[in-house]
């Protein structure tokens, strides 16, 4: 009785602490409906249905992937790439997604190289193959195993289950999470949604046009001011574009 009360109290605190996210399974019927619209080649309607689900707070990589497909069929390459990029952060190892993203990028007019990887990203090469959630989950599991291992060691001091190796892997996993968070905050990618946009030297229309970009071009966002975004293509080419011409 005493223990059951403790467990009930613990569960109550747990429920208060964790705000439950929107559960995707609640919207399964709407997902099926959107898929059916896509199958009937009503791409605009299916895109609308997918967008509605996203607005309701559903965050699912396959949902963004399907939305990207709908936009490709509608000929809106920029929106398609934007949603594929969003899907990539959630399902980074999906082969179909990689193929469709490549296809969509081939439809664009500008030849743009992906942003170069930093030294940390080269050393921690696996970071880009996992989503942030996966890395956090892996770190939490490792953290649990490490402390359980330590606890076992207290009871059975002769039992040394690779404690140092576990600690090393645990630290690596924490650093990986840190790099991933840094990448997601620093390397903010944006996609040009306008058909043709002039990249200016400053955040004003009367500044010099440095170069032009076309729909679907991927850029790295490095700054923001007065409704303008500073974007970078590579080490040499960067400039300002109006905020509303870019999808983030």
């Amino acid at each position: 009785m005493k223990y059951s009360n403790t467990i009930t109290s613990f569960l109550f605190i747990f429920l208060i602490l964790f705000k439950l996210p929107v559960e995707a399974s609640d919207y399964r019927n709407e997902f099926v409906h959107a898929n059916n619209l896509y199958s009937k080649k009503q791409y605009a309607k299916s895109a609308n249905a997918y967008e509605t689900l996203i607005q309701k707070g559903v965050r699912n990589g396959y949902l963004f992937y399907n939305l990207g497909n709908a936009y490709i069929r509608m000929g809106e390459t920029g929106s398609a790439i934007l949603n594929y990029v969003r899907a990539k952060s959630l399902i980074p190892r999906d082969e179909n997604l990689a193929a469709n993203l490549k296809f969509a990028i081939q439809q664009t007019l500008d030849k743009i190289e992906p942003p170069p990887l930093g030294t940390l990203n080269i050393l921690f090469f696996w970071v880009n193959d996992f989503s942030l959630n996966e890395l956090i989950f892996f770190s939490l599991c490792l953290n649990f195993i490490f402390w359980v291992n330590l606890a076992l060691w207290l009871y059975f001091p002769s039992l040394k289950i690779a404690r140092n190796a576990l600690l090393f892997v645990l630290l690596l996993s924490f650093i990986s999470v840190g790099i991933k968070i840094k990448n997601e905050s620093d390397l903010k990618l944006g996609v040009i949604l306008a058909e043709n946009i002039e990249v200016k030297s400053g955040h004003s229309l009367d500044t010099i046009t440095l170069f032009q970009l076309h729909e679907g071009a991927l850029v790295t966002i490095i700054g923001k001011r007065n409704g303008w975004l500073e974007v970078r293509l590579n080490e040499k080419q960067k400039g300002w574009i109006p905020e509303n011409s870019l999808g983030i």
Binding site: P21, V22, N60, L63, N133, I136
Partner: peptide
Amino acid sequence: LDEFKNNDTY
């Protein structure tokens, strides 16, 4: 539908 789960960040 098995793929349709929420991937919201923890």
